[in-house]
Design a binder for these strands. Structure first.
Length: 585
RNA sequence: GUGCCCGUAGCUCAAUCGGAUAGAGCACCAGCCUUCUAAGCUGGGGGUUACAGGUUCGAUUCCUGUCGGGCACGCCA
């Protein structure tokens, strides 16, 4: 018996059904051929509902059509039997030999097992986190980071050419506020005391940067408070409760009297924050291909070129001195400003330019991982792309809901405004990178996530991370005690693996590449966490019911080949999620 | 108020374009270690899928309405 070339059972069956369908007289558009894994073993291993979909166009009973399809199904070495069941399902039973031999494929493929050609090498960009470089990453960013990174891994494994990107908002007002905040803290060190505005950045990291500024530049940025507050609309004492407009005035004053020095401080705080962010994510197991600067879009003239393009296509109009984009033409609720009355481009304008640049760089598909609070933003970005002649279907946006931390069963309060939030770094140090990565990915991304800190730290069976890792460690332990030649297992005779537990475990291993494909297609890394828990669960059950290191050598080799395969798949799966697979626990 | 998302077991969540008897984990109860790691396993109870209609061979999934929750509605980013 030989396995089909593809080693992808599902694809193989779809091919068989396609052949059968062609020999049938089907009108116009034939339905898609769907093959699903069955939930019950009495329904076989795979099931096809094609006959039911043909019932209407062919004006025949599903059962009759199923019979016709079966008669025309080409012979396959791996199919044991075919049955018609229920309302017209065609159930396929795979023979044990095919499943047993599949282990050789897994053991030879090693870390490559699970890869597929779904993406056909198409260039896909995944942009994620993209937090403003105005402070440390917090636990909300952490979820976007974990999901984005795992999703990028999934897509790469499913055959896409993946490019990971972080968009750096280094051009906007927030950076100016951070610059001024740092400068004010620096001035305070030099006894130039100006009350610290409440809408400036409050965090201690700002004071730390001020200290570094002092160490690096001594007093070269000191200016007199009278000059800083020249023409200021309110009295010095009121600055602590300044409005946004007044804060903007403070920024203008700072730029005027600091001149070149302002740029130095700006560059300094930006570099500090980016380094912090980069190292934080690196420690979390996340690396990018590019950190894309928003400022570079202005410097290269792409922002003005983009707005000009929209203007030429007549999608802009003037109102109240500002330039508006007709996003309502593309289903948005209202039109949006791209250029303000004062001539400055809005964040939206640079964002359109950014998305245009993505497609100009030749990506076939673009995926944005956004916080769910940005959902109202989708329509206008897609609309702008469409206006520029880009197919908006090439942009997919995965929304990530917030993670809420629980300690002692109680919700932990969090508020960015007051600077009272848990940083990603604190979380990682408390629960460990493995638990953080796994927990963040455990739920569908557009669902709220309750992150139980106590559970993530616990070392018991109730902690799913340990549960999966423990299965891996157990297998390592058995193989270490056997102390034999692992390479030999790759070709060992596996025909003795025929107990229900063994066959079920085999099928679970066979499901791995398909699970990755679905998770990639649905942008749903959480499916991998479910898969791994199920695989670990089946293994633990098998472990408790069966002894591996037995005197019967062929039997032992077969069982070891099976658990070595389980180990490989656990390892490959955990790696997708950025979680380690320890040999010992 | 308008728009988007959501409502599934006591709790947290799954369910592969609409598929077969809606599944896991936690918690709870009862068992299993002189044998490869008990950080484990086995068994048990648990449901009108928020509610009311509709579409069809078939609905947790699609449509309409009601109730309840989250988010978004700036010439901020």
């Amino acid at each position: 018996m030989t396995l089909p070339d593809s080693l992808n059972f599902k694809a193989h069956f779809i091919e068989l059904f396609r052949t059968a369908l062609q020999s049938l007289d089907v009108p116009a558009e034939p339905p898609n051929i769907e093959l699903t894994r069955t939930k019950q073993s009495s329904h076989g291993d795979y099931s096809c509902n094609l006959a039911m979909h043909l019932a209407k166009p062919l004006r025949k009973k599903p059962q009759e059509i199923a019979q016709l399809l079966i008669e025309r199904l080409p012979a396959s070495a791996i199919i044991d039997k075919v049955e018609i069941a229920g309302a017209g399902f065609i159930n396929l039973f795979i023979n044990n030999a095919a499943k047993q031999q599949y282990l050789h494929h897994i053991l030879h493929s090693k870390t490559d097992y699970g890869t597929s050609h779904l993406g056909q090498g198409r260039k896909i960009q995944v942009e994620f986190v993209s937090a403003n470089p105005t402070g440390p990453l917090h636990v909300g960013h952490g979820r976007g980071a974990a999901i984005g990174a795992s999703l990028a891994n999934l897509l790469a494994t499913a055959g896409f050419d993946v490019f990971r990107e972080f968009y750096v908002n280094d051009a906007g007002r927030q950076m100016d506020i951070l610059t001024v905040s740092t400068w004010l803290r620096y001035l305070a060190i030099h006894q130039v005391s100006i009350p610290f505005p409440q809408n400036a950045y409050q965090g201690d990291y700002v004071k730390a940067m001020a200290q570094q500024l002092q160490e690096q530049f001594a007093q070269s940025f000191v200016r007199q408070s009278e000059r800083i507050l020249e023409n200021f609309p309110i009295s010095a004492l009121e600055i602590a409760i300044t409005t946004d407009a007044e804060l903007d005035q403070l920024i203008v004053n700072a730029k005027r009297i600091l001149q070149q020095d302002y740029t130095l401080i700006h560059q300094f705080v930006l570099a500090e924050q980016l380094n912090d962010c980069r190292s934080d994510l690196l420690e979390f197991g996340i690396e990018y291909d590019q950190w894309f600067s928003e400022q570079s879009l202005y410097d290269s003239g792409l922002v003005s070129r983009t707005v000009q393009l929209l203007e030429e296509k007549d999608y802009l109009y003037l109102k109240d001195g500002a330039k508006w984009f007709r996003s309502t033409n593309f289903g948005d609720e209202k039109d949006r400003v791209v250029q303000r009355e004062n001539g400055q481009f809005t964040y939206f304008a640079s964002d359109i330019a950014y998305h245009l640049s993505k497609f100009e760089r030749g990506f076939d598909l673009v995926i944005n991982i956004w916080g769910a609070d940005h959902h109202g933003y989708i329509a206008r970005v897609k609309g702008a792309l469409q206006a520029l002649g880009v197919d908006p279907g090439k942009l997919e946006i995965a929304l990530v809901q917030f993670a809420v931390l629980y300690r002692d069963g109680k919700k932990m309060p969090m508020s960015t405004r007051s600077g009272e939030f848990v940083t990603l770094r604190e979380l990682r140090h408390e629960v460990g990178n493995d638990a953080a990565r796994f927990f963040y990915a455990m739920r569908k991304s557009d669902q709220h996530l309750d992150f139980d800190l106590d559970l993530a730290k616990s070392q018991g069976n109730e902690n799913p991370v340990y549960y999966v890792q423990y299965a891996h460690a157990r297998i390592c332990s058995v193989l270490a005690q056997w102390n034999g030649d692992l390479a030999m297992l790759s070709d060992t005779d596996t025909h003795t693996l025929s107990s229900p537990a063994e066959l079920s475990l085999l099928q679970k291993l066979i499901d791995f590449p398909g699970t990755i494909e679905i998770a990639a297609k649905e942008l749903s890394p959480h499916l991998i966490t479910f898969y791994l828990r199920e695989l670990a669960s089946e293994f633990h059950g098998y472990y408790n019911s069966t002894r591996f290191l037995v005197d019967d050598k062929p039997l032992m080799y077969a069982r070891l080949a099976l658990i070595a395969s389980v180990r490989q798949v656990l390892h490959n799966g955990l790696k997708l999620l950025g979680v380690s697979s320890p040999d010992k626990m």
